[in-house]
Design a protein around this nucleic acid. Structure first.
Length: 526
RNA sequence: GGCGCUUUCGUCUAGCGGCUAGGACACAUGCCUCUCACGCAUGGAACACGGGUUCGAUUCCCGUAGGCGCUACCA
């Protein structure tokens, strides 16, 4: 067998939004293709005309654009092996169906859905195979002229694959090793339906992969049980020499409970299972997406890549796409299903967010403020971002790395930054921080501090520091926490001098005045 | 039910006959500190069970149990 250029494909059905598990499958195909200098093909498997959902195809393409997963050819990308939409390949499939029919490796079956249903009721565990096909209405049991007559009359039929029983079928899987099954347990799968003149997945898949010169089929584990059928199909066509290698990926499981990850889990636990927000054209319902939730695409990709694959060392799990392309290997993929850990997904987002420059935060932050009814300027917003990041950016750890705070999404910033724009209007006397830092004489202390600040013209952080630090030292005071209560209303926020400078003299004094009046002296009658 | 895949800390995983069973998320404690964080340090936490094979099994084989998938004129 000659060396062939690596060619892989991702081939979704346009039946709705792209599931996050599908994204991972596509990602692995992408990593594999890049690593081997091969091609990644985008094929649309729309052989079930009844399940087509408008907009799904566009949604899938947009998802991959956002995620940074690029295709080399396929629907919307061009290429020399088209068309890449299976519904546009009807004539091609017909030719190959005829080939199997002529070779006696497939046959016509005229059983109606009702007849099949009746058989299923009649025979327990009915399966259309070598043990039952002689009981059915097909070209194996009907006289040839009757078959011709039925077809000429326009009777509905399907073409079924004739599976020879008693053979051992070997599927050589790159992840699972050699999987052997006996052909006797396989059924005579429907390959083609006359009703819509389209093949089923199995036939279309094999024909397309062959014609498109696909070398590796990397897909979900749900396909493992039907892969012996696919092997048999390659053999029936005489294509075993160029049959692709298979790799069946483990499935993504629910974060809690039993079963595979589903849309409902996302709704229930509050995390998206789709890359982009999706508006269902039929039900009108909206499903949340990673993009709209504030995830960075790199974070989603990094997180997903590690769900079922691991480079096998103790190095950082933060990997760029390029690094993953370098490190990826199918042999390192795990074989058991992976629970979907959305807490860790948030951690990845946190990490990627911290690595972004300040400017990148501002547009999203601005959006967040507007949603909360705050009008501000980009300058003021950048100032807040700078302050909220400043504290952590200033920090350098033992290894010389700069670290930042635990904000996983820009939207996390609202409760942390509200006080920059809205003065506290009430104080919680039962709050631990307030109880600890607002004593009997605190109001008087704050009044003194306010008086001091009133004299200050240079209301910058540095100017305030130069004024207040010596004053506090000289009077043996530690006014910062109480001052924080005045300006923030709680035990959070940036450096007090930074904050006061941001608010300005007037606002700072007003907030102090209000806090002194409201909180006043703590009732000490106890 | 049948067939197949699978089984290491709560979760994702490293391990490919001999290790104090390693890392990450999460959790706990401490340090740092004008608050919240970040950061740093420390800690608790796993080889499903039963048989073999072997001088020696987390690792190889066979069962059992659990998990997952498939079992359509859907993909």
């Amino acid at each position: 067998m000659r060396e062939r250029k690596v060619r892989v494909r991702f081939a979704p059905s346009p039946t709705g939004p792209l599931h996050i598990g599908g994204v991972r499958t596509a990602l692995y195909n992408y990593l594999f293709a890049r690593q081997h200098g091969g091609d990644l093909i985008f094929r649309i498997e729309d052989t079930d005309s009844t399940r087509f959902v408008p907009g799904a195809e566009e949604y899938i393409i947009e998802s991959f654009q956002w995620l940074g997963i690029q295709f080399d050819e396929g629907v919307g990308f061009g290429g020399n092996y088209g068309p890449y939409r299976q519904s546009e390949r009807k004539e091609i499939y017909k030719k190959y169906v005829a080939q199997l029919l002529d070779a006696g490796k497939a046959y016509y079956a005229f059983d109606t859905p009702e007849e099949l249903e009746a058989k299923r009721r009649e025979i327990e565990n009915f399966q259309y195979d070598a043990t039952t096909r002689h009981l059915m209405r097909n070209s194996l049991t009907l006289p040839p002229d009757e078959v011709q007559r039925l077809i000429a009359q326009g009777a509905q039929y399907v073409v079924r694959f004739l599976v020879e029983p008693g053979h051992e079928v070997l599927v050589d899987d790159l992840i699972r090793g050699e999987v052997r099954i006996n052909s006797s347990i396989l059924d005579d799968k429907v390959l083609y339906k006359s009703a819509d003149q389209l093949p089923t997945y199995h036939l279309a898949n094999i024909v397309d992969d062959h014609l498109m010169e696909v070398t590796h089929v990397i897909r979900g584990e749900e396909w493992l049980p039907s892969s012996p059928l696919h092997v048999l199909l390659y053999e029936a066509f005489g294509w075993q020499d160029t049959m692709p290698r298979f790799a069946h990926l483990p499935l993504l499981l629910k974060p809690v409970g039993n079963g595979k990850l589903s849309k409902r889990d996302g709704d229930r636990l509050g995390f998206p299972v789709f890359p982009l927000e999706w508006h269902d054209p039929k039900s009108g319902e909206t499903s949340s997406g990673y993009r709209e939730k504030g995830y960075l695409p790199q974070a989603v990709v990094n997180f997903l890549a590690l769900l079922g694959w691991n480079p096998g060392n103790d190095q950082s799990e933060l990997l760029s796409m390029d690094e993953m392309v370098q490190l990826f290997s199918l042999e390192k993929c795990s074989r058991n299903g992976a629970r979907f850990d959305y807490v860790k997904a948030a951690w990845f987002n946190h990490q990627y967010l911290l690595r972004q420059p300040d400017e990148a935060w501002v547009p999203e932050f601005d959006k967040l403020l507007r949603q909360n009814g705050i009008e501000s300027t980009p300058e003021r917003e950048a100032e807040v971002v700078r302050m909220m990041k400043l504290k952590v950016i200033e920090y350098t750890d033992n290894e010389g790395n700069r670290k930042k705070r635990n904000v996983s999404f820009i939207s996390d910033l609202w409760p942390l930054t509200r006080f920059f724009f809205v003065a506290p209007d009430s104080f919680d006397r039962d709050d631990k921080f307030v109880r600890k830092n607002w004593k009997d004489d605190t109001a008087a202390e704050m009044q003194k501090l306010a008086a001091l600040l009133a004299t200050q013209d240079d209301f910058t952080a540095d100017g305030l520091r130069a004024l207040v630090d010596p004053w506090a030292e000289a009077n043996g005071l530690r006014p910062w926490n109480a001052w924080r209560i005045c300006l923030v209303g709680a035990g959070q926020g940036p450096d007090m001098y930074e904050l006061a400078a941001f608010l300005g003299k007037e606002e700072t004094l007003a907030r102090m005045q209000y806090a002194v009046e409201t909180l006043g002296q703590v009732d000490s009658n106890n």
